[in-house]
Design a protein around this nucleic acid. Sequence first.
DNA 1: TTATCTGAGACTATTTTAGTATCAGTTAAG
DNA 2: CTTAACTGATACTAAAATAGTCTCAGATAA
Lengths: 138, 138
Amino acid sequence: MKLITKNTDYAVRALLVLGGHPQEYISARQVALEQLIPYQYVRKLLRKLMHYDLVVSRDGAGGGFTLKSSPSKIKLADIIRIFQGDIQLSECMFRKKICPQRSRCVLRTHIMSIERLVEKEFNGITLESMLKELKGKK
Amino acid sequence: MKLITKNTDYAVRALLVLGGHPQEYISARQVALEQLIPYQYVRKLLRKLMHYDLVVSRDGAGGGFTLKSSPSKIKLADIIRIFQGDIQLSECMFRKKICPQRSRCVLRTHIMSIERLVEKEFNGITLESMLKELKGKK
DNA sequence: TTATCTGAGACTATTTTAGTATCAGTTAAG
DNA sequence: CTTAACTGATACTAAAATAGTCTCAGATAA
Ligand code: FES
Ligand code: FES
């Protein structure tokens, strides 16, 4: 069971790179090199982060990506949601209007509360807090 | 992001069926019918539960499966571990001796503590408690 | 002896995750 | 005004995880 996929992991690292160079445009190539992420792959991730308004890009030579908003506003939970979708109970169809099993489903309420707990934890971790930790390690 | 896969979900349902008929041997067919799980699939799950000592089987006509130990001893966390493996951080290689990224890895400690939190929650849910809830719903 | 069961293992299918390749268009700098 | 360093978009392929099927040998109750 994985709480975090490679996608998310890479995305966080990429954002940390951008966060490490405020106001600068950093190319995908540089991110790939700094974090040892496959070049084309990180480009894809960065583009996705752009679609979700976490970063902005600039075309052409000297271009690249930079954070759109302050690191304190970027939560780990957001990143996870972008790359792994919402936290959700297996095949339980309770999102699809009415689940036929619902009346005798025992897992549902438990999972939902644990999901909320996890979400809360992930919400407490921001890019800012991660950047600080990183500085502490250097 | 899924905390629970279909595997686990089915397995829990199967165990609930067995738990609903203490001391009786229930056939895979009956479990499949009661819970609308594909027959061959549930057989495979039950066999796995047997390998992990949660249930015992009896061959031949009138045979089937029954819980090996008391429902109070069967934790949701056990079932998840059987079907989804340990909770673990993405590709972080810190299990493999030394991870090259470790020194500048910021996610590791966070994820580990959240993993422990989740594990603790799942440990608090037993087959017994689920059976009780189910009775309350009937 | 037959119908009903499990054990085991090989398969196939589907979905999710990871990664690559290509091409058109933008921009800075010589 | 050409070239090198970029991004946007999209279509791919590959690998891994999950879900589900099929078949056959052997056990057992009736
Ligand atoms: S399976 Fe639908 S409510 Fe749980
Ligand atoms: S990636 Fe290895 S310690 Fe985090």
